[in-house]
Every structure is written in C-alpha cells, then in structure tokens.
Amino acid sequence: MEFTTGGRLEVRITPDDVGKRVSVRQFTDNPDGGEKFTDTVGVLTSWNDGVLSITRKSGESVRVSESSLVAGKSVPAAPARRRGPSAGFPELARVTARAWQPVESEPLGEWELRAAAGFTRRANSVLPLGDPGRPLPEALRHVREWYAARDLPAYIQLAMGSEGTQELLAAELAEHGWSSEVSALVRIAALAPIGDLDADVSRVALSRAVDEAWLSRYKRFGTPGPEVLKVIGSGPSTWFATVPAAEGGTPAAIGRCVVDGRWAGFMAIEVDPAARRQGLATAVMAALARRALEEGASAAWLQVEEDNSGARALYDRMGFETHHSYHHFRSL
C-alpha cells in the first residue's frame, strides 16, 4: 500500500472526500514498544468532530481518530461487474438489516429484537438468524413481553425460499398461533447496468441528509418523530435523491440508497402520481446507482411488495431477480 510522495507519508484526504473510497494509515499504540501502523480501506462515510468513519467492503465500520492519521488518499473503485451477483441468505439478511436500523435493539441468542416506536414493521420486528438460545416457547414468550412493554405488536420477520431453518421456524410459529400478515420480495441485480440506464439525471439532487421537502413526499408516517429520522438516516453510507417539482413544493420524485460494501440498497423510490411515466423513477435509480458505483459497490438489492405490479415491472426491466420473499408473522 503506497502512501508516499518523494518518500514522505502524506494525508491527502479531507472532509470533502466523504462518500469516496479511501485508504488510510493510522498510528496505534504498541505495548511492546516501537511504532505500529494499521491500514484501512473502504468508503469514508463521515468525518465529524475529529473522527473518521470508514466502512469496509465487508460492511464493518471502522472509526479512526484524525489525530492518529499518518497517511491517507482516495483510491479508485474496483471495475464494476456487469453480471448478476450471487448472494447467500445470511449475507443479504444482514445487509438489508443494516440499511434500516431500529432505534433500539436487544439480542436474544442469535435473534435480534428491534423497535422504533412502531415506524415500519422492518424496524419493529424480530430478525431471527439462528438459535434464540432457549426453547422456542420461552423465546416467543420473551418476544411478546418485550414488545408489549413498548406498546407494540409482536412481529417476527422470516424469509421464504432462502434456507430450510427459516421455513421450519415459520411452520413452528403457525403451530404457536402466529399468522403471516405482510409479504414482500427481496430482489437483486448487477449495479452497473442500472447506472448505465438511459435517464436524465440532471434534475436529480443527491444529499447525505434528509430534509423537509424529501419527507413531504415520503408518505409512510404522520408527523415525523425522532424515530423516523433515526431509521431513515441509518446505514453505513446513506444517500437521498430528490427531483424538485417544477413549481416548488413537494418534490416530483424521491429515493434513498444505502451503500454497504459491495451492496447498494434502494428504498423509498416514490413519484408524484401526476408525474408518473416521465422516467423519474428510472432517473432517481440511475443517479443513486452511479454514486454507489463510485463508492465501490457492484450489486444492487431492493424490497418490493408482491402485489405492486407496476414497481415489479420496472425492476424487471432493470434486471432485478427475486432472491427470496419475506413475511412478517404476528402473535395473535
């Protein structure tokens, strides 16, 4: 890893490089004496109060003190792959969870209990990725009590068509009186063809922060509370897209993308009904994909409800294929 110019170590990155792929070297204390350096490569997702946050390709977030930097530079992203990605269920489940994080969570063995004051089922449901560490009846009782203490219904999110253990758990939940309420598809695709879409991205503005105009188009809540902003703003490297309306006011279209290692997740793609069939959703997707490609992502994912035929047709044309479906089971 080369950092030098004329034999000198240099820090050639600044807070203006947030969103870029970088390589940094930091000095760390060596209890055995002598100098010790640690190198980190990934996307620079923030630089605040003297601390850099860098997300590695694996999705791991590394915090680096500005005072410990001895070298740093931006590095080009790897060439984009144009074939559809391969993905195991555990990897994709964790990536999708990191893109939509709850306000509070608690482990139960290898399950994660998540809550966000009721804002979306994804952020207010159990993510079971293994053994809860106790007999199932006892685990389900704990889940019901945990959500009841927060005045929330108890939900468990399960994937179908992914691996046998999830489908086995679904059968066991049914035996314990839980019922499936909402179904959606998790779909994946190569990212580069989405960035190559023939779309007018000149009207699409990208931002790291969500604003009131963006929220006015996102109709998934009443008055946005802190839990809404926390969930929407979560993720390793999050971008918001806005297409302003011709005469101001509520935007004509919006979108959200979370870059996490090789994955770029697309969410909240919404278009004003009066502005549909003008290519705005495609433009939003293309603009976000191009930014994700710059950060080194190569694969795309999204979630779409099974009965949303219009969105499914759009994503079909972009090359998305269904990886698995997921269902939210509710305790009766």
Score class of each variant (00 low, 15 high):
62 V>E: 11
51 V>D: 02
27 F>V: 07
31 P>R: 00
52 L>W: 01
57 K>V: 09
50 G>D: 04
58 S>D: 14
36 K>I: 02
60 E>H: 14
38 T>S: 07
35 E>R: 11
60 E>L: 11
32 D>K: 15
55 T>L: 10
36 K>N: 11
48 N>I: 10
54 I>A: 03
37 F>R: 10
49 D>H: 14
35 E>V: 08
66 E>Q: 15
67 S>M: 08
64 V>H: 03
53 S>D: 07
40 T>Y: 08
28 T>I: 11
28 T>E: 10
33 G>Q: 02
31 P>W: 00
47 W>I: 05
31 P>M: 01
40 T>Q: 02
44 L>E: 01
40 T>L: 08
27 F>N: 05
65 S>L: 14
51 V>Q: 09
47 W>F: 03
42 G>S: 07
42 G>D: 08
58 S>Q: 02
36 K>G: 07
67 S>R: 13
58 S>G: 09
63 R>S: 09
29 D>A: 13
36 K>M: 14
32 D>T: 03
28 T>A: 07
36 K>W: 09
29 D>W: 14
30 N>L: 05
53 S>G: 10
27 F>R: 14
65 S>T: 04
50 G>F: 06
40 T>W: 07
56 R>V: 00
46 S>W: 04
41 V>D: 14
58 S>M: 05
42 G>H: 03
38 T>N: 13
50 G>C: 10
34 G>W: 09
61 S>W: 00
63 R>I: 00
62 V>W: 05
49 D>N: 07
45 T>V: 12
44 L>R: 03
49 D>T: 02
32 D>Y: 15
42 G>W: 05
47 W>R: 06
45 T>N: 03
40 T>N: 04
33 G>N: 04
28 T>N: 05
65 S>E: 12
51 V>N: 06
36 K>P: 00
31 P>D: 00
58 S>C: 07
62 V>Y: 06
45 T>I: 02
41 V>L: 10
39 D>Y: 12
53 S>M: 11
52 L>D: 01
39 D>S: 06
59 G>V: 02
33 G>V: 04
34 G>F: 04
57 K>D: 13
56 R>N: 05
31 P>Y: 01
49 D>F: 03
53 S>F: 04
47 W>C: 02
60 E>I: 12
58 S>R: 07
63 R>D: 08
36 K>D: 04
37 F>I: 11
30 N>D: 15
43 V>S: 10
37 F>H: 09
49 D>K: 13
44 L>N: 00
39 D>C: 03
65 S>W: 11
27 F>W: 12
37 F>V: 12
33 G>S: 06
35 E>G: 13
36 K>F: 09
49 D>M: 06
39 D>L: 06
37 F>Q: 12
56 R>F: 04
66 E>A: 12
38 T>R: 15
56 R>M: 08
47 W>M: 04
66 E>P: 01
55 T>D: 10
60 E>P: 02
49 D>V: 05
55 T>S: 11
37 F>C: 08
61 S>D: 13
62 V>D: 00
54 I>R: 04
62 V>M: 05
38 T>Q: 15
46 S>D: 15
34 G>L: 02
51 V>W: 08
62 V>Q: 05
45 T>G: 06
33 G>I: 08
52 L>M: 11
63 R>F: 09
35 E>M: 10
54 I>F: 03
